[in-house]
Design a protein around this nucleic acid. Sequence first.
DNA 1: GTAGACCTTGACGCCGACGTCAAGGCCAGC
DNA 2: GCTGGCCTTGACGTCGGCGTCAAGGTCTAC
Lengths: 143, 143
Amino acid sequence: MRIGELAQRAGTTTRTLRYYESRGLLPARRAVNGYRAYGEEDLRLLRQIRLLQDFGFELEETRPFVDCLRAGHPSGDSCPASLEVYRRKLAEIDECLARLQAVREQVQGQLLRAQVEASAEHPGEPLCEVKPNAASNEWVEGN
Amino acid sequence: MRIGELAQRAGTTTRTLRYYESRGLLPARRAVNGYRAYGEEDLRLLRQIRLLQDFGFELEETRPFVDCLRAGHPSGDSCPASLEVYRRKLAEIDECLARLQAVREQVQGQLLRAQVEASAEHPGEPLCEVKPNAASNEWVEGN
DNA sequence: GTAGACCTTGACGCCGACGTCAAGGCCAGC
DNA sequence: GCTGGCCTTGACGTCGGCGTCAAGGTCTAC
């Protein structure tokens, strides 16, 4: 299998594959004409990488999973190093969620305060036009 | 007030202030010697920018707030354009939170599955060493 | 008059994961 | 033999928000 086919089957681009190879993540055998030659196993490795990338893992963080697969294990997370990456990532995600939720509350508070102040300057305009109870949700999740 | 003092009082750097000026966000008057000259009002504008930046707003998104303050309004979010940015940002944050929580569940699921499979290969090692009930939390939030 | 603390503009560096273009080699089909 | 589709390496561009360095001007204190 050449690079174009592998890229297509994995839903990515040839540029990406060459980039992974340049990082030492997915080296390729070479045909006599110099073309990169991949096998089905490479497709598995690549799919593992793409999955983690889609999760937001950095490229370096996928390396233990690829190494694990290449070592013959049934799945990329069959090795302690991969599990450790999972745990670290979960901790990172939790931190990120906490920060994001804190910011959300801040912004929400600012918005509500500013809207109240605006309504105080223009008493004729109502805070909510339709449903008083669902109003705060409408403002947040509406268009 | 010169650039160094303003930067210090706002807890940022001169490089940052020059960058904001290059973006047209915080232009400065000039003294006869060419030095940038700022007033107390500029400090207010700058603090508004920094607050939003700390929230994760992009620089361009702070512009309506700065314009609003500069127009004489009591706070940067007294203008409709600012409120609109608040709302857009809340929507973005909600999207981000949803994506992050979905990923969290995926990763968590992968981790649990992988750990179970690992324990199946090495039946002698227990899944949890101490407290069975708090185990899943320990794995996530522990160091 | 000189050290040194401030200021100026200009320009390159950084980070990650590629996109995109250039110049050229390889191979199949007509 | 020639067109067109694939492949090669190399190198620069992208995005945001600055950091950092260079070369030089300005002002104050001694």
